[in-house]
Design a protein around this nucleic acid. Structure first.
Lengths: 415, 415
DNA sequence: AATCTTTTGAAAAAAATTTAGAAAGTTCCC
DNA sequence: GGGAACTTTCTAAATTTTTTTCAAAAGATT
């Protein structure tokens, strides 16, 4: 990629995540000189990529001209998957969801038809939006599994694809496709547009059917040697003889996860425990989990205890993370976030119990503000991080297209 | 620092760690164009920093001129400390120890006189070497504790120093001083001149009185938000009710470390266990540890079992590291390394037991080749990483000094 | 001997930064 | 309330830095 395009890409990216910036802001963020920043901005205005946005209030001197992305110039197709449910949404340049959030019940395990169903779902979704494909920057897919994002391969699901999974979907949809692990991508979302902005090191804990981990290290998403970093759910933390999905025993997720909470709730109810919870079923995990979480929010003593137990166990895992990584922030995200701040006290209690005070002191725990949209926002962020150079160079998206007759004339003239 | 000096610094650093490089090598390593590399090299030759080293064998084309650091141009004072013993050695441009390795028995805990003893020790050591101080690039100090290397502060030891510890020692010795945590610095040594060269992510396990961790992340030493990353010894891994130095229970170091091995050995001997070990004492930890390690090397069944138990427990901790960081290599270093490959089998056994196979497969475990010198080498590497700009600009170190008479003449001429 | 590789140096081109000054505000002090 | 002094933004020109290009030199390969 030539340097000019690389610079443009970076500026577009920063404007997407920040919304509005001045030339001076761009200069400091990109660590380029002001003349360079000015030049890039002028070109991007000329290409109709960005617009001038009037003057900001003064901070003690001349007021800066502000810039932002031109509205309707492009969109992002964001796909967020978990083991059971897949969601799709269209994101615009202001990070808003501008379509219906489409949902597909799609079980990833032992389902040979899943890939084709996914592709159909995506294609139908894009058609429904009525956005021309040349205005879609790409498709971002957040999904579970061991994923090599560079190669676009998921070693856990859709393994029978020949070649890379992302290339395969790109061929079937006609759009650039970027794939990464769901928890990692949620980490990216927090880094770029959530609670981890301006954090050097942050650990994003994805509380769902398992306990995922997105790692922000040195202001960047960290993926390890093979893209497998953050396999938090399966750290051997307990000596409990409970067998885990992964074949081992004592994994964190055998003692903390929405799934474990559901199991425990059902057992307790069977034993006659007093609680507002009823009619739970492991077959309808999503509904069951939501029932437990909202019961906890409403103050149901048993549900709160259940949640606190999981939170404390997660905290034990987090205390290990803190010892090893010394992060500035821990951020709780994922499906469990519905219960909000209920997670904080028991988790902090575990940190107080298991962390060296000097380490615990320097780390704050927060609930993600992105909430249930974290996965979709992460998928969008993934596309912006990998923005295609061809897409950036595709100038004149704002200009009217030449008609075929005009093209003919141009060609003739050239001969 | 101006760019030229920054470039020079980087070239000097790479030459120190690599020994010999061609202009093309420098260009690729520093990611600068060949003309730049050539220009820097020419200037450095002119400054007597480096020498031309003849031609290397051809790799299919013209033979490259090789460059290396000029011998005797500068030296590094390396200090390696642990809780009980402090070592000092002089390192030359070829990474060789060119002095006696001086040793000082210095207990860091509850010892108000320790800092002054350390400073005296360093000053005496430097005097003994008979190297003029303007030829010493700096003093690198590797020591235990919570250290903020940027600020030069050790929050665990020597806390009564007013201002930063490194500045204080610098004032008392008249040389630049760089301080960092011992395990981190061993990680740096492995990254730059050991088994972690060319590793993107590597975990360096320092087996000593506790279990330290130096983290290499994205080809760089990683220190976390406050410089406390890698606090591996105190991750809460066991439910054993053994109280640890840090005040908590169940820390990794309560079940794996040379100290624990010594305790267990003494208890077993008391109980009449069959072993070649005898006359052990916790007061003379270094000797006791060495006795156990060398007994294991000689094949003493009990000593091997003792070591294997510790290795397996370390492995359990390492399996957590692997799940979280997905590193390409695990490197065993520190005092325990004396027992060499004996650590590998039981540690690998733990990885096989506690790791998801796909993760364990991608990580290899090795014994450091730097051995007992790892701390000193790390301290030297620390100095090279932070090489002072003034020191680099101090040209003419190779040129003969003007005599005072000549200086007089110059001064007169100038008037 | 002809063809390919790699290194090397010089010249040309491109890119980026520094400098300087003008424009547009704010703040503080009398 | 009105300057004076200070800030911040913005533009253009001058300068510096860096990369690209080209060609020659030196060796390997077939």
């Amino acid at each position: 990629m030539d340097k000019l395009t690389a610079h443009k890409k970076e500026v577009i990216k920063e404007l997407f995540f920040s919304g509005e910036l001045s030339a001076a802001d761009i200069s400091t963020i990109t660590k380029k000189s002001l003349p360079i920043a000015g030049k890039i901005l002028a070109e991007l205005i000329n290409d109709k990529w960005i617009i001038e946005n009037g003057y900001a209030v003064s901070t003690g001197g001349r007021r800066p001209q502000m810039f932002s992305l031109a509205p309707d110039n492009f969109y992002i197709a964001a796909i967020s998957m978990d083991q059971h449910v897949t969601q799709a949404a269209l994101i615009d340049v202001n990070k808003n969801i501008v379509s219906e959030v489409e949902t597909l019940e799609l079980n990833l395990k032992e389902n040979d038809a899943a890939l084709n169903m996914l592709i159909d779902f995506i294609n139908t979704f894009i058609q429904k939006t009525h956005i021309p494909t040349n205005k879609i920057a790409g498709i971002g897919i957040a999904m579970p599994g061991f994923i090599d994002a560079n190669k676009g391969i998921n070693y856990s699901f859709f393994r029978n694809t020949k070649g890379s999974l992302s290339t395969h979907i790109a061929e079937k949809t006609g759009l650039p496709v970027f794939i990464d692990n769901d928890s990692s991508v949620m980490g990216l979302a927090e880094l770029r547009m959530g609670a981890a902005r301006n954090c050097k090191n942050a650990m994003v804990i994805n509380v769902g059917w398992g306990i995922g981990l997105g790692m922000i290290i040195n202001n960047k998403l960290f993926r390890g040697d093979n893209g497998f970093a953050g396999e938090f759910s399966h750290i051997p933390l307990f000596t409990n003889n409970k067998i885990c999905d992964c074949g081992k025993t004592g994994c964190l997720e055998t003692e903390a996860s929405l799934y474990v909470m559901a199991e425990r709730a059902m057992k307790a109810i069977e034993e006659g425990k007093t609680t507002m919870l009823k009619n739970l079923s492991l077959d309808q995990m999503q509904e069951t989990a939501n029932k437990i979480l909202s019961a906890a929010v409403k103050g149901d003593k048993f549900a709160v205890e259940l949640l606190s137990e999981s939170a404390f166990n997660i905290g034990r895992g987090v205390s290990i993370l803190i010892h090893i990584v010394n992060p500035g922030k821990i951020i709780i995200t994922g499906r469990g976030t519905v219960a909000g701040k209920l997670w904080l006290a028991p988790l902090q209690q575990a940190l107080n119990t298991y962390c060296i005070p000097r380490l615990a002191e320097n780390t704050t725990v927060e609930i993600s503000l992105l909430g249930v949209e974290a996965g979709l926002m992460g998928a969008a962020a993934l596309v912006m991080e990998n923005l295609n150079k061809d897409f950036i160079q595709k100038t004149g998206k704002g200009k009217p297209e030449l008609h075929s007759v005009q093209k003919e004339m141009k060609n003739t003239a050239a001969v």
